[in-house]
Write a protein that binds this DNA or RNA. Structure first.
Lengths: 305, 305
DNA sequence: GATCATTCATATCCCCAGGGTATCGATCGC
DNA sequence: GCGATCGATACCCTGGGGATATGAATGATC
């Protein structure tokens, strides 16, 4: 009946991910016996067995899988509470905007200009994370609002679409496929993306990033690195049309991919955000994007956040 | 840097709500000094002052207000994780459907019939909560899916609309206003709702329920009680048209209210639900509702959850 | 199939975090 | 100015969470 403790959830997540008490204990910086005891106590409190264990192997039960999913979001909520409180108490609160460099479709300067005219605006602070996990940063309270490409993992977030564009594939100009003017996903079988995933998987990687195994090469984390790899033919790369337009490079060819869905640049924020500064930025972004979509008749309808 | 503990958050919430260390300590079943110390330690960990305290009064700082909001959702996430794991591990998992009695517009039997034909269906279990907080039950893991009237507090939930209907006001047949065939909200000034709120506030109570002060009368918790009160002229009551249709009573008059927005019956579930049984019920509900909206051409398009 | 290595569980000890009691000190009402 | 109220400080003490040592069971190897 007594409720769970954060410590118990962290222990559980470690064991559930490692499926090995010894390794999980090492990862937690503690000895194995207290970890075993803690998991047993957790199971007793819940009245549920979370792991099927023999002396040789550990497996998650159904209840364990459920808890693993929910424990993650609960831990995110806790760290987010701490981060947001820290930030709110700091002397100079800012509006922390997370985005990958160069995916803003060139809208960011105008959005910021419009945003700064809003009386509710706080000074903006850009958090540029290369292959960083912007939705995760929102959920963990490290950022207040983000510009990301949809589809993405939007659990706990509210979003507003800004602009939709086709996705092009960037490949070496010398690539045999570059001779063709139009491709489909199957043509890319065998090519790999900068993050090591196969290129023909249909962008299923849009959700949670797979955990990187230690020893693997660090994936390229910015466009310069990526274009270097692309030019050498090592990888191919999916880029929204605006990114392609803003990065013409002699050694790189962009080609449309027939059966790849369009991607949408969205502005996202935590669902329970009540900050007027976030609302101001969302308003500004929607207004600018609407103007971009229909430049003849600039729209001014404000979108409530 | 060490992360927060559930205990600290509970302590903080208690003090933040009571704004009084002594009362908060009593509510937590502990003495006041360790509570003071725990809050100080929390502030030290966050590097932020959460309360402005003099010896005579305690006030929340801005950071404290932020934390109060986020702490609530974090605690909900923790208890939800525990509840869902408990339920998933129980011998006979069921699909727990939360709703207020009689607000289903008469759709529930058909929905359940359709649902039961789905191979992914688990045995349904109805959780009927009178004035209960269905969205809260979803967030706390006490139910898997709910039928509720929108607008409501949908943080962390996904919803799908089922049917939209006008809202009528139920009043005593002897009420002078019952002589008129059409009313507007302002006409109801001075009347009160079964939960004690003023009737002309425009249903702003749709969000989080206000905490009930001890000593106040318990609000009526089911339709029978409510209609009794309505018949005596003690209260008025807002009812969707389908509820009115299914509850004709001699002593009660239903009248349309001009400036009251329609209400929508929605099916809601936790945003990160992955249960096939939830998806099956959502599909069934959407199909039945679509058929109800256009009975001439029964729709079978399945709605993915 | 006997032996060994691996891995989770049990037994036992120990320390400190978190809670209790007593008291102080500051502020407000009268 | 005096007492009452309420948060802060000082100090003690207990129990839970952690470590170490060891047991027990299973799978691999020859």
């Amino acid at each position: 009946m007594n409720d769970l403790e954060v410590r118990q959830l962290r222990y559980f997540v470690a064991v559930a991910e490692e499926l090995h008490f010894g390794r999980a204990a090492a990862r937690l910086g503690m000895a194995q016996p207290p970890l075993s005891r803690a998991i047993r106590e957790l199971e007793r409190q819940l009245g549920v067995t979370l792991f099927e264990r023999t002396t040789r192997q550990v497996r998650l039960t159904g209840a364990g899988e459920v808890l693993l999913r929910d424990a993650g979001t609960a831990l995110e909520a806790i760290t987010a509470a701490a981060q947001r409180a820290r930030h709110a108490g700091s002397a100079s609160p800012r509006l922390r905007i997370a985005l990958k460099a160069d995916i803003d479709g060139g809208l960011l300067p105008q959005i910021l200009d419009a945003y700064r005219t809003d009386p509710a605006a706080l000074p903006p602070e850009l958090i540029l994370g290369g292959f960083g996990d912007q939705p995760g940063a929102l959920r963990d309270g490290l950022a207040d609002v983000a510009l990301v490409l949809s589809p993405m993992d939007d659990r706990g977030l509210d979003t507003e679409p800004l602009i939709t564009e086709p996705v092009l594939v960037a490949m070496a100009a010398t690539d045999p496929l570059a001779a063709r003017s139009r491709l489909c996903l199957a043509d890319l079988a065998g090519r790999i993306l900068p993050n090591g995933a196969p290129a023909d998987a249909g962008r299923v990687d849009a959700g949670r990033a797979a955990p990187r195994r230690p020893g693997e090469a660090r994936p390229a984390s910015n466009l310069s690195e990526i274009f270097n790899l692309v030019e050498t033919g090592s990888v191919v790369f999916f880029a929204p049309a605006s990114v392609a337009r803003r990065n013409p490079r002699p050694g790189v060819a962009y080609r449309p991919v027939g059966d790849l869905p369009n991607c949408t640049l969205v502005i996202a924020w935590p669902q329970d955000a009540r900050s007027p500064a976030v609302a101001a930025l969302v308003r500004a972004a929607c207004a600018i994007a609407a103007g971009r979509r229909a430049p003849a008749e600039p729209q001014t309808r404000s979108t409530t956040a």
